[in-house]
Design a protein around this nucleic acid. Sequence first.
DNA 1: AATATATTTCGATATTTCTAGAAATATATT
DNA 2: AATATATTTCTAGAAATATCGAAATATATT
Lengths: 96, 96
Amino acid sequence: MKIEMAANQLAELGHVTRLEIYRILVRAGHHGLAVSAIQEKLDIPGSTLSHHISRLVKVGLLSQTREGRVLRCQAQYQELERLIDFLSEECCKGCD
Amino acid sequence: MKIEMAANQLAELGHVTRLEIYRILVRAGHHGLAVSAIQEKLDIPGSTLSHHISRLVKVGLLSQTREGRVLRCQAQYQELERLIDFLSEECCKGCD
DNA sequence: AATATATTTCGATATTTCTAGAAATATATT
DNA sequence: AATATATTTCTAGAAATATCGAAATATATT
């Protein structure tokens, strides 16, 4: 993973509301949750929620699939894995 | 780990220069590196470097120890571990 | 086609962050 | 004490981000 990509993903996770959204979806499993279900859990305006979700989608941490009127959001687990691998890479290579 | 703490740490890592600093120190091992050594690797003004380092220190991802005129910076590995644990926690609890 | 539901886009304001030069501080050396 | 080295703090302008109401869009239902 390129460092710019890692920094972008970390920055998006580095906001309490977005991290809450992300964690809810990580816990929810591959099937994910509808935007409306997330909104019920968080109690924030739709426009704000939509803004945060779209940022997480943009950096690849979430995906969305439409089911009729409902948009379902899913955590992209393999991206989290790649990000964690990046952070751990060559950890302590020059340890004493 | 509280979510506010995790978000703060992620936000600080979510900046290319800071992530570079942090990765250099993660690779460097427990002994760490002097601020001046980091500056040589990155080629940025001292004030900018100092600003970024102090932000990483503030959220506990780095520590600093003075050795005479030199300030040595170290990655706080256990904080990274805690952060990664937070991100992975209850991962896919409701998987289908 | 009209209406209802779900979600996003727009727009505007408030706040935060980034950057780096200049000045200040801390320690070491002479 | 004077000077040199290492690093931080101060400052301020530019850029980015956060928030949310209003309007727009997409789909479903009647």
